[in-house]
Structure formats: structure tokens, C-alpha cells
């Protein structure tokens, strides 16, 4: 069988042939679409390394069948920065050393972008910690991650206010 799906992948329209219904979004990105920035840490929704945005919401790509995603908008870590301009979350992760080995980092960053968009956490550290708990960092960079999300959240809120004014 072969299915064709249309995706908006990092802002670009893509027609993708899925020759096997077992292919997950994660393996589609990594093994077939040459987008290996999204990482596989557990392949079972238990670590968050594969977090991407699907229609603007964070999701575990490892548990999504690619065949079901016709029409979806997918943003991966490769599509977050605008050219040379880092997304505020990316910049804050560097500044606050919110990673060490960097393997969980794409997932952490996509999750943080999703969390900020959800709007529940604001810059409250405890709500950020809870909201980021679906992303395991074995190196133990949580202190920096929390600070980074806090700062990015503040910066983005300030910018929004600025834009609105």
C-alpha cells in the first residue's frame, strides 16, 4: 500500500509518500525526510526527546502514525529559528546553559515553545518545572532549563505587549 499525505513541514508544503503504515512521524522525519534534529530517546512517549509541534501544539512524534497526519502543520527544531535569528527559547537555552550533551535539547526546546504557547505557566518556576516534566534530561540540566524557559517566556510576553502597544 502507499499513502500520500501533504504536510506543512517547517513552513514548507511537502507531499510525502508513506509506503508503510507503521512509520511514525519520528521515523519519517529522521529516516526518510533527512530531518534528524528531532531525537529518539525512548520511542514510547516516556522521555520527550522527540517533541515537535503538530498544528502548534507539542506532541511526541514517536507515538504518531505518519499516515494520519495529512494536512498537518509540523514544526521541528530545524524550523524554529528564522534564518540567523534564534527563537527566544533557543537563545535562552544557550545563555542559561539549559543543556549539556544536547541530545534532549531539541525536544526540550520544542516543548518549551509549546508550553509558553499554552499560556498556563507564565514565568512561575514551579509551573514551568511541572510543564517541562515530560522532557527527561539525563545530564541534569533542569536548573538551566527552568531559567531559560522563564526568561524566554518573559521576553516573549514583553514583546507581545510591545507589539500590541
Amino acid at each position: 500500500m502507499s499513502l500520500f499525505i501533504s504536510l506543512t513541514l517547517n513552513g514548507e508544503a511537502r507531499d510525502v509518500s508513506i509506503d508503510d503504515p507503521r512509520v511514525t512521524l519520528l521515523d519519517l522525519l529522521r529516516e526518510r525526510l533527512a530531518l534528524p534534529g528531532t531525537k529518539k530517546g525512548c520511542d514510547r512517549g516516556q522521555c520527550g526527546a522527540c517533541t515537535v509541534l503538530v498544528n502548534g501544539r507539542r506532541a511526541n512524534a514517536c507515538l504518531m502514525l505518519a499516515a494520519g497526519l495529512d494536512g498537518a502543520q509540523i514544526t521541528t527544531i530545524e524550523g524554529l529559528a528564522r534564518g540567523e535569528d534564534l527563537h527566544p527559547v533557543q537563545a535562552a537555552f544557550i545563555e542559561h546553559d539549559g543543556f549539556q550533551c544536547g541530545y534532549c535539547t531539541p525536544g526540550q526546546i520544542m516543548s518549551a515553545v509549546g508550553l509558553i504557547a499554552e499560556g498556563d505557566a507564565g514565568s512561575d518556576p514551579e509551573r514551568i518545572r511541572e510543564g517541562m516534566s515530560g522532557n527527561i534530561c539525563r545530564c541534569g540540566a533542569y536548573h538551566g532549563i527552568t531559567l531559560a524557559v522563564q526568561e524566554a517566556s518573559r521576553r516573549m510576553a514583553a514583546k507581545e505587549e510591545g507589539d500590541a502597544a
Binding site: P36, G37, L80, F93, I94, D97, P106, I109
Partner: peptide, 21 residues
């Protein structure tokens, strides 16, 4: 100093072993 590999790691271009195809 911030990490010299920071930019590669936050943009997803840092290549780990299994990223090679």
C-alpha cells in the same frame, strides 16, 4: 563562556551518531 557547540545543539544541526543516514 557559553558553549561553543550551543548554536548547533539548539538548532538541531549537531549530528549524533544515529542521525547519519
Amino acid at each position: 563562556a557559553t558553549r561553543r557547540d550551543g548554536l548547533a545543539k539548539v538548532t538541531g544541526v549537531a549530528t549524533f551518531a544515529a542521525d547519519n543516514t
